[in-house]
Design a protein around this nucleic acid. Structure first.
Lengths: 308, 308
DNA sequence: GAAGCTCATGACGGAATGGCATACCAGGGT
DNA sequence: ACCCTGGTATGCCATTCCGTCATGAGCTTC
């Protein structure tokens, strides 16, 4: 029994697991049952002669051997898929970038950068998908995205501690803002004082993954009053407009807030900065990915200037 | 059904078939039956959606799609095997060259070049194997050797007509010589006249593959008298010494002929030149392979000078 | 026309694979 | 203290897959 006995299916399953972080999620993504995935991993580990996953109560994490395997698996599967495309007579994907992005990049930075890129490099195709920061980091590791646009909050911990380390570039650094109903008493001035925020009602994001509670101004109350929970920005902003509560917004959304919503900075308290990061793993970055990175960087300067 | 459904086993089998040139040979090499190989290829072709092999009465040849697939298959399998090594904690094969060589290189050029390389670059490991020209060409295409040392006779046809073309470099060009018993009447002078060769008894090589009859001076008789057949050079030369017949030898063997054998040039008739070729496919050639090529080139100059 | 080589294919048995149900474990809320 | 909810592992089963064996069909050589 050696790794050469591994099956392609097992590699595919393993990559999916590495990307999703749990066997269960990988199973549903693949249309398998959890038990099938568990078995595939088990036989792959037997073939590898070493555990590839560290089992934890909240999912699994890659071991050192697992990191070796997921990297190889990604290139193997890419080869197979490229062969399929080539045989089908489709153009190869040399001119394609796969981009992952965190939700609030979707209203400003992303569409502008894509428009810019289409103007300057019409031959480049961008395939993108939204995802949470940990999901995107796993996708980078699993080789299913080439480039990821991430947000990071203080204390700016590294995104993961695996090797090789992800390559990072900070695109912009901006302040977290507060969205409140135009009719709200605090909405009168040019800014809100942090102490006035205690005891308010909040509209939070559905807590996706291990992120901290989003949408509530950080560091205020132990147990803030969550009036509503929504994943969608448009829904959240309309809830604010309807006077249902307050929420935090990244600066990029200030420009697109609907009527009835005011977006203001918060005075006092610790600086709530957010960094916009570009992350990738492959080095050197393939040509089209580098061009996309340029476009994102160009647009992020504009945004940075707009909103400080 | 798409190529993504291909299995690793099928790819392995396919590479072996591409390398051996017949399903049967691949089957015995893999320890399978011929029918198993036939089925694997059939399902792989179904997955690819196109025939990968052209069936001929004497084996199979790759189609255009087959060439695409064998190339990808080689890199996939290499990845898998590299993973296996890495997981086993073995050193990776970056410092290894896989060389293929035609039989008569084994007495002079090859050992000298390897000794030279070990002196100048002790870190490089060479794994080599003997093979016929068509077998080695297939091995280059299948990615199981990095470099091949080949012989070529006029009219110096291209080794194959597939794409991408093999990269070639001529190392030396030498005359074909004649080995005859020291006691033979023709062995008296410094050279033999081509017309005296008609009607002689010959010691031929076992006709391996589709090569023409080897060991008999070319262009003489329609049906030469073959007294003995042997694959091994040492055996052939001792048969000559025992007076059992004549045979042709490449110039590189002149120096190692045993007592009782004379090696002489042949006067008259068309020039019977043999080219020593170095062939490879990957470009650029990996570093250790390039160093081996240098060593072979260096030694071939010496040989060329020795024997003109 | 028989022998010898090639590849293809029908029949069949055993191994691999995925589904289901269930067991187990840890953390959080009541 | 309890259960609920997330996670993974595993016994049992049906099916599918993948080999072998035996045979057939086509072509070349003698």
């Amino acid at each position: 029994m050696s790794f050469s006995d591994a099956s392609l299916t097992a590699l595919r399953v393993f990559r999916e697991v590495a990307e999703r972080g749990t066997l269960t999620a990988a199973a549903t993504a693949l249309g398998y049952t959890q038990s099938a995935v568990s078995r595939q991993i088990a036989t792959l580990e037997r073939a590898a002669g070493a555990p590839l996953l560290e089992r934890r109560h909240d999912g699994v994490r890659l071991t050192a051997a697992g990191r070796v395997v997921v990297h190889r698996a990604a290139t193997v599967i890419d080869q197979i898929d490229a062969t399929a495309r080539e045989l089908a007579g489709l153009p190869d994907e040399r001119g394609t970038v796969r981009l992952g992005w965190f939700t609030s990049a979707g209203t400003g930075l992303l569409p502008r950068a894509l428009a810019e890129l289409r103007r300057t490099h019409p031959a480049i195709t961008v395939i993108s998908r939204e995802g949470s920061t940990p999901a995107l980091v796993r996708s980078l590791r699993a080789g299913t995205v080439d480039l990821a646009l991430l947000a990071s909050a203080p204390p700016y911990r590294p995104l993961d501690d695996e090797s090789p380390p992800l390559r990072l570039r900070t695109l912009a650094e901006r302040s977290l803002l507060l969205a409140l109903p135009a009719a709200h008493p605090l909405a009168a001035g040019d800014a809100v004082d942090v102490d006035d925020l205690r005891g308010q009602s909040w509209i939070a994001s559905a807590n996706s993954g291990d992120d901290r509670l989003l949408g509530v101004w950080p560091g205020l109350d132990e147990r803030p009053r969550i009036a509503h929970t929504a994943r969608d920005w448009l829904a959240k902003l309309h809830l604010v407009a309807a006077g249902c509560g307050l929420t935090t917004v990244p600066a990029s959304l200030a420009a697109v807030a609907p009527d009835g919503v005011r977006v203001l900075p918060v005075r006092g308290g610790p600086q709530e900065r957010r960094r916009l990061l570009l992350a990738w793993l492959r080095h050197p970055l393939p040509e089209p990915a580098a061009r996309l990175a340029d476009a994102l960087r160009g647009q992020s300067w504009i945004i940075q200037a707009e909103t400080r």
